[in-house]
Write a protein that binds this DNA or RNA. Structure first.
Lengths: 158, 158
DNA sequence: TATTGTTATACTCTATAACTATA
DNA sequence: TATAGTTATAGAGTATAACAATA
């Protein structure tokens, strides 16, 4: 039990209050945990945030432009420049002049990039599975379906 | 249909590839949408990120210490100092010397803080409801239950 | 006129380290 | 020795604005 009258006394349990009504808060605190685990796991890999998702997006959509990639990972196009610079510098992706539109760069992964991406995704899967393996397969399907629905609704509202 | 052979051509739909297997990615993109909506809605309110959750936590746990609050909202104690400074400067919260431990500050909201918090939470609810109202009540309950389970598992793994 | 990519830049968020006063 | 709070600071992440080349 917690005695709110005793100012500053250490308490055994915290109340979330109205914060607990917000789905956004629930999303954020889980994601913070995932992100920290990933960050500490990737120390020394020189990994920029957004680099992995951009690389994965290029891998799944060969020839995609920077602007398209930026939009898909919810970044500004100027941020995408820095990320693609880094991907190119490390030999994980290439910029190729786009056919038919000389403003565009078509983006492609390299074999090294694919190998790096596989390593990253495997690492992330292990981290996520520490949590997700405690859910049943059916719970996981329901969760993913609900999250996808929510994202589609977000897009439709724009 | 998308023709991956035509480098740099605008495409009608994007593939997520292996990125779509990650729950963390799904969480992040929804949360980014929620966060942006909130950010644009709060322009001019001078709202720091973390300020609302800290204020809500103080409201729900009167007399909580800074370190406890920081831990609950997943921030470093040094970050909490800045947030509480701002809350105090704007008259939304007070630091009170804790009874029995002169190192601690017990934190309390002011009536102005409560009013501000109510306004913020109402605003956030409206934003979330634009998305969540498309889910059934049962779906929403399932979602919240799964997210809570996941967070508890995260905590248990630490 | 609008768009792609780029640069420069500034701001926010967060963590680390060192310090103080207390315990 | 350890903890609560503080300060200073540095890094990462992101957005904005202005620009060149092209559409």
């Amino acid at each position: 039990m917690n005695d709110a009258e005793t100012a500053g006394t250490a308490r055994d349990s915290l109340q979330l209050g109205r914060l607990g009504d917000l789905v956004g808060f629930r999303l954020r605190r889980i994601q913070t945990h995932f992100g920290r685990d990933f960050g500490t796991a990737m120390v020394g890999q020189g990994l920029r945030s957004g680099m992995m998702s951009t690389l994965a997006l290029i891998s799944a959509n060969p020839g995609i432009s920077q602007s398209e990639a930026a939009k898909a990972v919810l970044l500004d196009k100027s941020a995408a420049v820095l990320i693609v610079n880094e991907l190119e510098r490390r030999g994980f992706a290439r910029r190729v002049p786009a056919e038919g539109d000389r403003r565009r760069h078509a983006l492609f992964t390299t074999p090294e990039g694919e190998a790096f991406l596989t390593m990253l995704l495997d690492h992330l899967s292990v981290i996520e599975d520490r949590v997700l393996s405690r859910l049943t397969g059916e719970e996981l399907r329901v969760l993913n379906r609900l999250l996808d629905r929510m994202y589609e609704i977000c897009l439709a509202l724009e």
